[in-house]
Each structure stands twice: as structure tokens, then as C-alpha cells.
Amino acid sequence: MTIAPSLSRQQPAASVHPGPLLKVEDLSIEFGPKGTAVRVVEGVSFTIDTGAAVGIVGESGSGKSMTSLAVMGLIPSPPGRIATGRILFEGVDLLGLPRSRMPEIRGRDIAMIFQEPMSSLNPVMTIGDQIGEAIKLHQKMGREERRQRVVELLKLVGIPDPERRLGAYPHQFSGGMRQRVMIAMAVACNPKLLIADEPTTALDVTIQAQVLELMHKIRRTLNTTILLISHDLGVIADICERVIVMYAGKVVEDADVKTIFRSPKHPYTRGLLQSIPRLKDENTRLYQIPGMVPLPGTIKQGCPFFPRCPDRIDKCARETPPLLEITPQQKAACWVSAGATS
């Protein structure tokens, strides 16, 4: 890859920060007026080391997207609000920063790719201008130099004939191509952390395969730390080496990918893994978790998975299990897995 060196040259001298790149501590997010507010994320803690690729998996309503939006400082407020917690990026609490500092960090240090490649691009601006704008915001660069860099970026994300495509408008691109452009914009300033929120959900499988391949390439060439949000364990298994499983606003399991697939410790993770349709599975009947995800705010005490759990014991109804260390590589919020018995 010839572009890699020229891209990394743009990177500001790496400020060496000891400890994890991102540390989220006891994050809670509420929606609605105070008093009757509903907690959509509660007590979420995790860390991401520099250079790692971590996935957050969960179904709709699990709070996974809210968590990632909180890191970007993009929780719609009102009605949303961060009730408790800290988000430490290179040791600096993002929640403690004045609002005016966030745009500076967004895009330069933390960048995000969204699910909808159709609506995330401005339809009346050319691709070249949009990527160029992202660069202009954070880096001093001459016009020609900037144009060169946009071409490099387009080449990096695999857009054929980039010099000619600079002047194209988003509607002239297919969904997969637009997602490539989005990725080019996101990595334009060589961010330290790239948050990808369901980057392939809106795409066809063969295009998804292309975009996943591109994400691998980005990681290889730019050494970007990745936080991938997805409902699809297959996508997460492809990119990440660690998985955080969220359910009803809480982290229920946190382990490296191989461990979680080999021996999931939380009954929800087990159910989720079993209910995925697989190409290799001969069994015609899919495993199904009984019942449904609780509506936000309806579970007042005990484990949120209690009503649907096949392994529940009395304790689960009374006390909410914290994220307990099962092995050094695996944490699960489950009394039973942690050794409690009825």
C-alpha cells in the first residue's frame, strides 16, 4: 500500500497516553422530563485500548447506539441527558469539557460512520468538497494539497477513478459507494477512534462483504482504534477481537470474541448466539428466546433479563447483578454464572 505512509504523515505526533484510549465509567443516559425520566442506558462501563477493535452488540432498545452517541457528545438534549458517569478519552473527561470544545474533538480525534449512507451526505455538495470540508475543519492545508489528499482518501476506500469522481454528487453513487465516501470522510483526519454505528446494516450482503473488507484495510493501514456497533454478531466476529453485549440498557457480558462464541456466560448471550440463523446449521428450527425485550423503565429491580431467563434463581428477581469477573478475559452480569445457587 503506497498511500499509507503519506496518510500517516498527516498524523500529529502521537501524544503517548498511558492507559486505555477510551474509558467509559458508570454511564447512564435518561430521556424525558426529570422525575418521570426513563433510563435507556444504565451504569455502563468499559474500556478500549489503543489499536483495539471492540464491538457492542445488542438488539433495538439495548442502548448500544445511545452509548456511542454519548461518546461523540451527540445525545439529543433535550429530551436526553447524561445522568451519571464519565467518558475519559486519553484521560480527559469529555463530559467535563465545555460544549465548545467538542466539535474540535469530533472528526479529528473521534470520528463516526453512520448506518444511513443515503442521508448522511449532503445531496447538493460534491463528494470532493464534502471530504475536503472535513479536512479543512481540522487541518491547515493548501487547496491543491487538500485535493491531493481527497484523491488519496478516495483511493484508499476503493473508489475507482478518484480524480474524476471528485466532482460527482452523492446521488450518482450507489449505497455501497456512499458508505465508502462516508468512511473516507471519517478517516480524513486520521482519527484515533473510529465509531461505526451499524455501518453495513443498510447494505446488501455482497456489498457488506466489500465494506467489511475495507474496514479491515483501514485498520491495517491507518492503525485506527475501532468501536463497532452492530446487531449482527457475524459482523462483529469478522472485525473485532472483543465484544460487549448490551441488553435493556446494561452491559451483560464483556469478553474477547473467541471466548464469547465458545463459552458465553450470560444466558442472554447464549440465547442470542443460538437464535442466529446459520448457513451451516442443518436444524430447521431456530432457537428462540421466549418473551420480548422489556420496555424501558419497566424493570425496577433485579436482573433485566430475569423474566426471559431459563436459568433464573430467586436472587435474580431481587438483586441486579453487577458485571462480575468470571475469568480475567470474561465478565458477565449474571448471578448464576458467577456461582450463586438457588
Binding site: 428462540q288 421466549p290 420480548m292
Partner: peptide
């Protein structure tokens, strides 16, 4: 048996 009738709606 696991196909319980769903009793919760908004």
C-alpha cells in the same frame, strides 16, 4: 411451549 403469548405492549 416457549411461544408464550406476549402480554406486554406499550
Amino acid at each position: 411451549a416457549s411461544d408464550d403469548i406476549e402480554h406486554a405492549i406499550a
